[in-house]
Write a protein that binds this DNA or RNA. Structure first.
Lengths: 220, 220
DNA sequence: CACCAAATAATTTGATCATATTCTGAGAAT
DNA sequence: ATTCTCAGAATATGATCAAATTATTTGGTG
């Protein structure tokens, strides 16, 4: 009986997860058009689950609905990045303060493990690994804060710049990427919530500033 | 041929709008269970559009997905309200600052008209009218800021407490409801973005404090 | 005669529905 | 109390319809 005790999650959840991965860590370029029928083929799913996952990701800002029924990966403007800079600066430090209060040593060990893996990815130039571990790091902090509403706001903002960050990281390589994580972690271990919040704020600011400097300068 | 020249929006958009209205201004009680088949009957729509609208509203936090295929209207805890208090305090003043910079006299006249209608609703004890105009007021400010990402964050937060606010307003009547709108508007007319931001912050704080004081004290 | 533009046909893609299937939870029976 | 059964609800499919983009034709013009 133990061989298959799990009730599999619904198809639309699976599709949502897969598509989210593609957006954050895959090959979906900002501006790229998304078609429902393309996704049903790519993800081997029916239309209804794909459609539901799409609506969900659209309302999270991970994809955009372009007026005439077409869906695409968002292209960030400088103003958009400024909004994300402000919003993340407003929310993430608070999440870190709350996380610091909740964190057990085991929690911090787990997060440190993520950050070590992140360093290794930078070391060997593994862009995709960096992106994944960076997301996991921030996400682990969100979850530790035990503040689901604020965490979902932060997550939504992360999703919005995921594809652009991926492109930029790919262009720049892993060397010049910001990492204020260790300062944040040691402050959390010391129970200094204020210092931890400041460290993550610096991390957020330098990340967003990097994006602003490297947005594709298309037009003449 | 001119009798119906408009291309109607897709059914899932219409369903989304209707359901959103029900959540903010209708009769959906926090904790109430939502069924897909109930909605297809109530809104006279097919299952697929209803399903898509549901996913969208769930990911916006306007509805909650209770593990086992059950969807319901969210019940706010004190911690939830504290999160919303922090989040709105962080975002809305910034939106008002940006709105102040963009606002034309005509824009301000339009918003003032909403606020006057709001006062009338309070005057005659029209709870539903108050809720609608209060939402329109805040929403008009969000839109004026020309900051779509921050506006969507603020809107999401408003959606989350809509049903609870409605219940509380119904219990208390319209007399004791906060309204710092006139201070905000006159500051905007004077071009004093800082004062306008402070006024809206006060409005947000007193609204959220009101909610905290009046959450249903269920358990013994 | 070549070229541009407007109109129209063709194809691709999205939207919707009816129906089949799977899952959950409540109550009956042990 | 535990297990079984079953009704009802959610999930998923694929066919069908409608809209939009792209390709093609056609007619006129420099």
């Amino acid at each position: 009986m133990d061989t298959q005790p799990k009730a599999s999650p619904p198809a639309h959840e699976i599709v949502y997860g897969k598509l989210r991965e593609h957006i954050l860590f895959g090959d979906l370029i900002p501006g790229q058009a998304i078609t429902i029928q393309g996704l049903t083929a790519m993800l081997d799913a029916g239309m209804t689950p794909v459609r539901e996952a799409l609506r969900r990701l659209i309302s999270e800002g991970a994809l955009v609905f372009n007026g005439n029924r077409r869906v695409s990966v968002p292209v960030l403007s400088t103003e958009n990045v400024n909004e994300l800079l402000f919003g993340r600066q407003a929310i993430e430090p608070q999440l870190v303060i709350m996380a610091t209060q909740n964190a057990t040593p085991a929690d911090l060990d787990a997060i440190e493990a993520i950050d070590i893996a992140l360093d290794e990815a930078i070391e060997i130039g593994d862009v995709k690994g960096y992106l994944r571990k960076n997301y996991e790091f921030h996400r682990a902090l969100y979850d530790l804060a035990n503040a689901p509403i604020l965490a979902s706001l932060a997550d939504t903002m992360y999703l919005r710049f995921g594809p652009s960050l991926r492109v930029i990281s790919g262009r720049l390589g892993t060397q010049s990427l910001p990492d204020l994580h260790k300062a944040c972690l040691s402050a959390m271990r010391a129970g200094d919530a204020h210092a931890a919040a400041n460290a993550i704020k610096q991390d957020v600011v330098s990340g967003m500033e990097l994006m602003k400097r490297n947005l594709t300068e298309s037009h003449p």
